[in-house]
Every structure is written in C-alpha cells, then in structure tokens.
C-alpha cells in the first residue's frame, strides 16, 4: 500500500529575510478528498480480493466448459452460454419457486416472532436491555452447522421431539425431517436474530409520545399499531426483511441437513454442482442468475417500500 503525496513545494533556497516574518509553513499534508477517502481503503482492499475477484471468477466459470482433470475449461474464444440455458431448464423451476416460498414463509415467521420481542426489549427491557440483546445473539457463539445438526437430532424419527410427544401420549411416529416444516423451521430459527436486531434499533429510536398521541387522538391499539408504530419502525422492518430473506433464499446448509430430495432449495442444488455432480460451470451459472434475481428483487422492494421507510 502506498499513498501518493501531492508534489511538495520546493523549499526556498534564499536565506530567510529577517525583516519579514516567516511565511506560513506548508506542512506536508494530503488533499482533503484523499484524507477522507483513506478511510475506505481497508474495506476496498478487502472487498476487491474477497468479493469482486471471486465474483469475476464465478462469472468466468459460468461461461466455461466442464472438464475432467480441471473442473472448468475456460477460453475466451468459446464462451459457453449453454450453462445458462441449462440453469434455466424448466425442470429446475420448482426448486427455484420453492426457495422463494420457503424464504418468504421464514421471513414472515421471523417478523411475527421478532417484532413482539424487539418491541418488548426496546420498550419494557429497562436497564437490562443490553443483556436481552446479548441473549438474542448468543446462538451465534455456536456454529450454525452444529446448531442445525442439533435440530436434526431433535427432529429425526426417533429424536427428542418424537420421544417427548410420545411421553405426552401424542404418538411418537411423526415425521418432521425431510419435510418443508423442518427446513422452514431451521431457516426461521437461524435468521431470527437478523430480524430482531434492526427492528429493535428502530423501535428503540421511536418517540413513545407518538403512541400516546395516537391514543390521544382516538385511535385504539390495533389502529395505532398499523398507522403509527409500523410506519415509524419500517426502516428496521425493511432492513430485517432483507437481512433474513436474502440469506434464506440462497441457504444450502439447512435444506441439505433438515430437508430431503423433495425440499431441495436453490442453494443446496448449487452446492451439489460443486460437490457430487461436479458441474462447476452449471453451478456458477445458477449462482450468477440467483444473484441477479435477488438484486432485481431488492431493487423493486426498496423502490416500493423503501421510499417511505428509508
């Protein structure tokens, strides 16, 4: 890393004139715009190496050919668009639709579960608010993979949940694993903190007097919720929805471990191309398409709700 300094003013060769006061000394400083943007340098380097370059590699792979020894053969003269045609094969459409469906249901569940908790912590948490927030993120102390394995143990056919239901006389032959239920449960469980934290930040900032003002003006609890609280905290809600939905659509750990063949999501299908199926070009093409789709979706979403909220 080197920073180019502006050309220095050459020191004056003439001896200082005792009759005149010293001219103001020019210290060796960088121009303002450089100084301000220096703050961006670490992240820029980080993103260049860990986001932009890998992304370019994925795009390169997506236009290559499946190889035998090297996984991908790429030549500029033979760009293979067929990978994209493959990726858009109507046979894969259900996987894609299912991914969006699961992610949407999980996001909605996160809103329903997260909102009351975030509201409670922000408004009634008192001086223990920070403790509650730490409790919310405590699951992150354990790897997501391990926690999903734990769910596997709980949900499997002779797992904890079935045994518990059996002891309660509710039958012990329920099938949870390999079903949509298990995958959605896993996604909701995994991403819930990403909903709670931004919601909390928004609710905490809200002036309590707004709620009182709404009551004062004749609006009951339900009306106040939809007309005052929800619009006021919508920046947090929008952020929470994005933070849950985006990783949930592309997640592959949860459907791989808790789902079955019929509950595969796009993430696990892509992971498959790089693993078992050994079709890196196809996997790369699917990745690129998924990214474009999510970007378009976020763009539309922010244009519709974001203008009000952000």
């Amino acid at each position: 890393m080197s920073v180019v300094a502006p050309p220095e003013i050459p020191p004056s060769a003439a001896p200082p004139d005792p009759a005149r006061p010293d001219p103001p000394r020019h210290r060796r400083t960088l121009p303002e715009w450089v100084k301000a943007n220096l703050l961006l340098l670490p992240t820029s380097v980080w993103f260049a190496f860990l986001l932009v370059i890998p992304l370019l590699i994925i795009i390169e792979y997506s236009l290559g050919k499946r190889g035998v020894i090297d996984p991908v053969h790429f030549t500029w003269s033979h760009l293979r668009y067929a990978n994209y045609k493959d990726a858009l094969d109507p046979d894969r459409l259900p996987i894609f639709v299912r991914s969006i469906e699961y992610a949407a249901i999980s996001t909605f569940a996160c809103v329903l579960l997260g909102f009351p908790l975030a509201y409670w912590i922000a408004r009634f948490g008192g001086r223990f608010r920070n403790v509650y927030l730490v409790l919310v993120i405590i699951p992150f102390l354990t790897s997501y993979l391990i926690r999903i394995y734990a769910w596997q143990v709980i949900l499997q056919d002779n797992g904890l949940l079935n045994r518990l239901l059996g002891d309660l006389g509710l039958g012990n032959h329920h099938v949870f694993i390999n079903h949509a239920f298990a995958v959605i449960l896993g996604l909701t469980y995994g991403f819930l903190p990403f909903m709670i934290l931004p919601l909390y930040a928004s609710i905490e900032r809200m002036d309590v007097a707004l709620v009182e003002a709404s009551y004062d003006l004749g609006h009951g609890k339900v009306s106040t919720f939809f007309r005052v609280i929800l619009p006021t905290v919508s920046p947090g809600l929008v952020a929470g929805v994005l933070l849950v939905f985006i990783p949930a659509v592309g997640d592959f750990v949860t459907p791989s471990l808790l789902g079955g063949v019929r509950t595969q999501m796009i993430g696990s299908t892509i992971a498959d191309q790089f693993g078992g199926s050994q079709n890196w070009p196809l996997g790369s093409a699917m990745s690129v398409l998924l990214m474009l789709f999510i970007l378009a979706g976020v763009f539309v979403y922010l244009r519709r709700v974001g203008e009000e909220a952000l």
């Binding site: 002036d207 007097a209 009182e212 003002a213 004062d216 005052v228 619009p231 006021t232 919508s234």
Partner: peptide, 12 residues
C-alpha cells in the same frame, strides 16, 4: 386532546 411537550407529530 393533548399537546405534547415534544409535539409528537407523526414523522411519516
């Protein structure tokens, strides 16, 4: 009806 010290106008 109340006029609040912070006014409590609905920002949205």
């Amino acid at each position: 009806n109340t006029v609040f010290q912070s006014y409590a106008l609905f920002p949205h």
